[in-house]
Design a protein around this nucleic acid. Structure first.
Lengths: 189, 189
DNA sequence: CGCGGGTAGCTTCCAAGGAAGCTATATTGT
DNA sequence: ACAATATAGCTTCCTTGGAAGCTACCCGCG
């Protein structure tokens, strides 16, 4: 992406934080180099991406404290959310967590190896499998999710309640409208 | 992540779009399973992530039309933005695009193989390298970036100007405040 | 009954980055 | 001047996920 989007990435030695505002600086450079273009959308889209990545980095820190990656956390949370007996089919989990079934197989592999979930054949349909939280898995995700929510509260506390509400409204509206008429950009090159 | 966050991922057969609102549904499930927790932050953080991923998916479609991945697009854009003669050190590019130098090496490898950039030794410092856009590279990124901005305008058009302005303000404020006092969550377990 | 399409999960291969360490070179302190 | 340290870029290995295809199985229809 041109993106001013793309903030942090996670580990490594990526860039220092910019003084004024990285996005604004990038816009200024484009202004100079391509004065024929109106790059104002970057102010929103770029900042949205940077903020999302920043938040992801913060949230990931908590997952790590429980020995979980983002993917594993997602799966455990989906199982926990399902309610007792904390079971779901791999395909359901894939749909819920928005990854392919191939990715889900591997996530479950890791969680099974860690003793956090079990995998057994489904009773009715012999193609099917049932993934279930173990006791250790349930305890872990309960603890981790509690810490996760504490963390989200902490992050959101930087906004006043009205600001948070306004932000939520705008995000929901945009998403909804994209889903609505949202045909992708079809124009040729 | 628990995340309602994590929307689309890109390819594959990930989930269908939810009727009401995936995030709201997830919140309801947590409400039932963990009534002791206040999961309201998900309404903002989750939706932010879902929207960001949705936008990324849309933007990626345009990069693909030019045979570029997100990473390559970023590098070409950073070089183009630098102004004539469109040159930068790999380390600068890594910092600008927020990836490790290892990732940058590989991006440059791909772009060099595609004939879009060249790599030559720096004159003053014999450890250094200079990455430069080729003519083909400059032409491609100029075209691709034009299409990219068209695409961003299209996506942003779903918001009224005042909405976009308000969103930008909120995003900037949040990011700034996170950068400010933003110590990560240090609490143990 | 048994054939054929659809479905579920898994496997294999590939793409892209991060982490850490290597090499060559620059810089700094004494 | 020269040893110690820092820096630039690259390389290697590992992780994660997507793409596509495989196998087993279900189910409906002739």
């Amino acid at each position: 992406m041109e993106h001013p989007e793309h903030p942090d990435r996670r580990g490594g030695h990526p860039a220092p934080v910019d003084p004024v505002d990285h996005v604004a600086q990038i816009q200024a450079e484009w202004q100079r180099e391509r004065p024929d273009l109106d790059v104002s959308p970057q102010a929103v889209i770029g900042r949205l991406h940077r903020l999302a990545d920043r938040l992801t980095a913060e949230l990931t820190l908590v997952y790590q404290r429980y020995g979980l990656g983002e993917g594993e956390f997602d799966v455990l949370a989906a199982l926990r959310r399902a309610g007792a007996p904390y079971e779901r089919a791999p395909g359901e989990l894939a749909a819920h967590t928005m990854v392919t079934t191939g990715a889900m197989t591997k996530r479950i592999d890791r969680l099974e190896r860690a003793g956090l979930v079990t995998r057994r054949p489904a009773e009715d349909d012999r193609r099917g499998r049932v993934v279930a939280l173990t006791d250790a898995g349930r305890r872990l995700i309960d603890e981790a999710f509690t810490a996760h929510m504490r963390n989200e509260h902490r992050l959101l506390a930087h906004l006043a309640p009205e600001e948070a509400a306004a932000l939520q409204t705008l995000l929901t509206a945009w998403q909804t409208r994209l889903d609505g008429t949202g045909q992708p950009d079809r124009r040729a090159g």
